[in-house]
Design a protein around this nucleic acid. Structure first.
Lengths: 257, 257
DNA sequence: CAGTGGTCTAGACCACCAA
DNA sequence: TGGTGGTCTAGACCACTGC
């Protein structure tokens, strides 16, 4: 339900506490409520959420207020609007947004999907470093994956992936090797985990002997090191990924605005 | 003035031509008109544009329509809204958005502004490659700048910058060395050129002898190569920048969403 | 206090889609 | 044809700023 706040000045509650009245407009509250339903899985990825009219009725608010809430969710890619059809929970499976998190593109031309080679997929305990990144406790269960992505037979990306073990019970190398489309779709479909946002730290590094072998380059060759921390709803970290990219035939593309 | 389009179906103009009726909503047209005024320099960077009411009156449209147009301009960082004060033409000089295009951050801690060393600033003719990138004709005048940015005395960024000579008449090494704040502010203030959007292509490369000397690293050391094409209004390319970044103490930070 | 942007509402109509 | 999101309007009120 919409929380109607006292208008204008707060009642003079001079008790100690944060001085910020934390005013938030109605549409932000509605956005928060819709977000809760998204997190709770009330509507699954790809499904339609209720129409604006329905939501307006549910929250006892005008359609325009719901619209503004959904506008923001759409701007954050949590939801996709389709005129005449409805509003849908966003997915990494959509055609034109696929590989939204993969910014490595070929220098020229197009290319098919990557060939995946899973080198490792094992359960273990979180090191202090991994635990810190994923907001776990040291020695909590984690899944670690190592894989190589090749384009046209050329190994191009070597990735180490760490996932919280509890959320990804039963993840197998088989699944990782054989599924279609982005791995994040697998995560959505099989584990109900939707990655919403990520931060990347990018560096140039020299290939060590092992990396060189796996990526078929000379030892010491420059590689792009991409450390990505992905989050689900509410900024909960759910994946740490360390990638090494060959940039002799591809480049990392970024748009600034 | 707002262009009122024929409602519903087009009159059956079966003459040859693009089949798309190119319907665009009123607020998009208003946005376009405001954009024109921005390009034309009717309001300078940092200045306030007319109030929503004024613009609504000027364009014979409701305030809500103007608001939606400005909303989009604000979302594209072309304009900044300040409640109670007005709407202002965006600038690279704003405190919290300074160095908006510089994504290289120190691994830990903060750091002061960069020390700039201008190695070169000369006028010349565009090579075929530069001409293509900047949408000039080969041998059109260009300004080329080479500089090193250092943090705490450590040379960290080596940049080559190409600018269209006609738009940047009179740019000197003096100016580039002595101005305060981001170089893009200098461009706005001295040349009326506002960079609005940019694309970057990022690679890992090995330092050659010259680069190694200028950045105080060993030859062959891995460096981040960042090629940036910056645009003014209307996607007109106005700057090509090739940077080499040391990433031993800094990293390139990117947010995906 | 007046002026600005920000929120909220209610209603009309349009464009798109599916059945 | 009915339902969905998309546009446009008009008016009321709120929050913030500066005089």
């Amino acid at each position: 339900m919409a929380v109607h706040q006292p208008s204008s000045t707060e009642p003079a509650s001079d008790a100690a506490g944060p001085a910020t009245p934390a005013f938030s407009p109605l549409y932000q509250q509605i956005k928060g409520l819709i977000l809760q339903s998204l997190q709770a899985g009330e509507w699954k990825p790809g499904e339609a959420i209720p129409s604006e009219m329905d939501l307006a009725a549910r929250f006892r608010v005008s359609q325009g207020t719901v619209r503004k809430a959904i506008d923001e969710l759409a701007a954050e890619n949590l939801v996709v609007r389709r005129q005449g059809k409805g509003t849908f929970v966003a997915t990494h499976a959509e055609q034109h947004v696929r590989y939204r998190f993969l910014k490595l593109v070929p220098d020229s031309g197009d290319e098919g999907p990557a060939q995946r080679t899973i080198l490792e997929c094992r359960r273990g305990r979180a090191s202090a470093e991994i635990a810190r990144a994923l907001a776990l406790r040291t020695s909590d269960p984690v899944v670690q994956v190592r894989r190589v992505l090749s384009f046209g037979g050329v190994p191009t990306i070597l990735e180490d992936i760490w996932l919280p073990g509890n959320a990804f019970k039963g993840l197998t190398a088989e699944q990782l090797a054989s599924h279609q489309g982005p791995t994040y779709v697998l995560f959505e479909v099989e584990f109900g985990v939707r990655m919403v946002r990520a931060e990347e730290k990018i560096r140039a590094v020299a290939a060590d002997a092992q990396h060189a072998r796996l990526l078929a380059v000379d030892a010491g060759a420059p590689l792009l090191s991409v450390e990505r921390l992905s989050h689900t709803y509410n900024d909960v970290p759910m994946e740490l990924r360390r990638g090494l990219y060959r940039t002799d035939t591809h480049h990392y593309r970024n748009d600034l605005s």
